[in-house]
Amino acid sequence: MPTILAVTEQRQGALRKVSLEAVAAARMIADSLGATVDALILASGPVDGAAGLGVAGADRVLTATHDGFGLYNPDGYAATIASIGRGYAAIVFTASATGRDLSPRVAAKLKTACATDVTALAVEAGKIVATRPVYAGKAIQKLVLGGSPAILSVRPNTFAPVTTDKAGTPGVLAVPAFAQRVTVTEIKAPPQAALDVTEASIVVSGGRGLKEPANFKLVEDLAAAFGSAAVGASRAVVDAGWREHGAQVGQTGKTVAPSLYVAIGISGAIQHLAGMRTSKVIVAINKDKDAPIFKVADYGIIGDLFEVVPRLTEAIRKLKAE
C-alpha cells in the first residue's frame, strides 16, 4: 500500500500548529490514493503535542531523535528524511520558513523537484495535481507531480486540521550519519511582538494612511481586541522604518491567508494584494472611495481611519466581553 509522509515541525520542543495542516493535506492525498499516512517528528527529545498527530490523521507517528535536532538542523533533517524518502508516494511539508528551506534539500537528495506553496490538492488518474499561485498571485498554476516521491509544501492556514478516530502507532526512525555543513546557532526573539502574520487567523494591517509610526497603536489595539491577531504592514511603512520587515504583507513580504484580513489606510497596490488576496474575508478602511483595496474587500468602510478604527476596536472589545 502506498504511504504519504507528512513532515511536522517543532520549536523548542512543542509541535507547531502548521504540522497538523501538513498531516491534513497528507491525509487528503492518502484517502484519494487508498494510502496510509506517516507523520515524522524530528527533535532532540519528547515533543509536546505529538500525541495529537494520530487524531489529526496520521496512521503512524515516526520520531527521529538526535541531540543536534533541538533547533532546526538543515543537513541532519534533510538526510534523515531522504534516507526513507524513496519509500513514499509523496512527502508533504509546510511552506513555512523551515519547510521552504527543507523541502528543496530533500528533493535534490532524491533527484526530483518540489511544488512549493500549494493551496489545493487533487488526485487525477493516479497522479497528484497541485494548485499553486504564481506571478504574485496573479495567476494559478496546476502542476502534475510525476516525481517519485512527489514532493510538495502546503501554504500555512490553507489546509484545515482534521479530526479522525485514529490513534497513530508510534515508531522510531534512526538518524543516519550526515555531514553537518550549516548550523543554526540561536533563535532570536523579534524586536516587535510575537504572532506571525502567516499563521494568525486574523491579521490587522496598517499602511501609510496612518501618517506616523506612533499611530500604529491604533492597529495594535484593534489586533489586541480581536484576541490572537497579528499586526501586518504595507511595504510603504516598512520601507519608512515604522515596522519590521517580518510584518510586511505582499509580493516582497509575506503571503497570508487568514480568515479575516483588515486593511487600514492601505491603498491596495497590486503588490500588496499579491500577499493577501486569498484571505477568506477582507475588510478595508480607507478615506478614498476609489482606493483599489475596495475592489477586493468583502466589506469596506469609507472614512477617516482615525475616527473609524477606535470605534471598531471599542465594538470588538465589547463583543468579546459579552
Binding site: 498554476q141 475592489k295 469596506g300 472614512g303
Partner: peptide
C-alpha cells in the same frame, strides 16, 4: 518530474460591499 497542466487567472473576488461611511458604519 513536474509538468504544468494549466494556468488560469484567479477567481475574481466577489465585488466588495461598502458597508457605509464614517464611524457610524462600524
Amino acid at each position: 518530474a513536474v509538468t504544468v497542466a494549466g494556468l488560469s487567472l484567479p477567481p475574481e473576488r466577489q465585488a466588495g460591499r461598502i458597508v457605509g461611511e464614517g464611524p457610524d458604519a462600524v
